[in-house]
C-alpha cells in the first residue's frame, strides 16, 4: 500500500514536470505546442549524450534546458511568429516540426533504444518503505519547479508582463509591453522546460526517436483541464496521475494507459472549465 502512495506522488511529480513547459506556452501564447513531444525527446538525447561524454549525469538536466531555450528561440522566430493569427495552423506547424525533429534523431541515432545513466541509483528507505531514490528526487524537483514557476509568474517583472499578455494581449501592448518579446521568451522558456523534463525522465526509462509521443497526449489533457494555473496543474497531475496508478496497479496496465485521456475528456465535457476554477 505504501509503495502505491509513493507511486502516486512520484507519477504526479513526473507528469507535472513534463506538462509544465506545455502549459506556459499555452497560457501566454494561446498555442498548443505539438512539438512538445519532440522537445522531450531532444532532452532525452541530451541526457544520453551527456552520459556518453562522461559528464556527470547531474549536469544533463541544466544542459538540456539551455539547449532547449536556444532551440526554442530559433523555432519561435522562424515558424511560430508567422502563425500567430492562425492558431490551428500553428498546431499543425508544430506537429510537422515534431515529425522533422524525430526523423532527424532517427537518422542520427538510429531507431533503437538508448539509455542514459541515472544520477541517483538504488533505493532509499523512507517511512519504512524501500523506494527508488531517483523517482523521489524527481518529485522533489517537481515541487521546487512548481514553486519556482509560480514565483516567476507572480514576483518578477517578466511574470507581470506575461500575466498581462495572458489576460488581455491588446491592452498589454497598448501599455507598452513588448508582447512579441514576451512570446519569444515564453516559447524559449517552454521548450527549455520541455527539454529539461525529457532529460529528467530519461534515466527512469530509455530514449528513442519517438520517446516523447506517449507523454504528449497526457500532457495535453492535463494542461487543458488545468486552465492556465500551475497550482491547478499540480492538482490535476495528482488526481489524474493518481487514478492512473490505481487503475494500472489494481485493474490493468493497458486501461491505466488510457485513464488520463478518457477521464480528462469526460471531465472537460461535463465542465468545460475543468479544474481551472475549482
Amino acid at each position: 500500500m505504501g509503495s502505491v502512495t509513493f507511486d502516486i506522488l512520484t507519477t504526479a511529480g513526473i507528469l507535472f514536470v513534463v506538462a509544465s513547459g506545455l502549459m506556459i506556452i499555452l497560457g501566454v501564447m494561446k498555442l498548443l505546442n505539438f512539438a512538445h513531444g519532440a522537445f522531450l525527446t531532444a532532452g532525452g538525447y541530451a541526457a544520453y549524450l551527456t552520459g556518453a561524454a562522461g559528464i556527470s549525469p547531474w549536469f544533463s538536466v541544466p544542459l538540456a534546458g539551455i539547449v532547449g531555450v536556444a532551440f526554442g528561440l530559433v523555432v519561435e522566430r522562424t515558424i511560430i511568429r508567422p502563425l500567430y493569427s492562425r492558431p490551428l495552423d500553428a498546431i499543425l506547424a508544430t506537429w510537422g516540426l515534431g515529425i522533422v525533429i524525430s526523423q532527424i534523431f532517427a537518422l542520427t541515432f538510429g531507431r533503437g533504444v538508448q539509455f542514459a545513466p541515472s544520477p541517483l541509483s538504488g533505493t532509499i528507505e523512507v517511512l519504512g518503505i524501500e523506494y527508488s531514490a531517483y523517482r523521489l528526487a524527481v518529485s522533489v524537483i517537481a515541487v521546487l519547479l512548481a514553486i519556482a514557476l509560480i514565483g516567476l509568474l507572480s514576483l518578477t517583472r517578466f511574470g507581470l508582463n506575461a500575466r498581462a499578455v495572458i489576460v488581455n494581449e491588446d491592452l498589454a501592448r497598448g501599455l507598452g509591453i513588448d508582447s512579441t518579446r514576451v512570446r519569444a521568451i515564453t516559447f524559449g522558456l517552454g521548450s527549455g522546460l520541455a527539454c529539461a523534463a525529457g532529460a529528467l525522465i530519461t534515466p527512469l526509462l530509455s530514449v528513442d526517436p519517438n520517446m516523447g509521443l506517449p507523454w504528449l497526449v497526457n500532457s495535453f489533457m492535463l494542461v487543458l483541464i488545468s486552465g492556465v494555473s500551475f497550482p491547478s496543474l499540480l492538482l490535476a497531475s495528482l488526481i489524474l496521475g493518481g487514478t492512473q496508478v490505481l487503475i494500472s496497479t489494481f485493474i490493468s496496465p493497458i486501461l491505466g494507459g488510457m485513464t488520463i485521456v478518457v477521464l480528462a475528456a469526460m471531465i472537460l465535457r461535463l465542465n468545460p472549465k475543468g479544474f481551472s476554477r475549482a
Binding site: P87, I91, I254, M258, P272
Partner: peptide
C-alpha cells in the same frame, strides 16, 4: 462553448485509445 483545440485533442485521443483497445 467547446474550443476548437479541445475538439482536436479529442480526435487525437480517439485513435490512441482505439489502438490501446486493440492491443488489449
Amino acid at each position: 462553448g467547446s474550443s476548437p483545440i479541445y475538439a482536436s485533442i479529442i480526435t487525437l485521443a480517439l485513435p490512441i485509445v482505439l489502438t490501446q483497445v486493440i492491443y488489449s
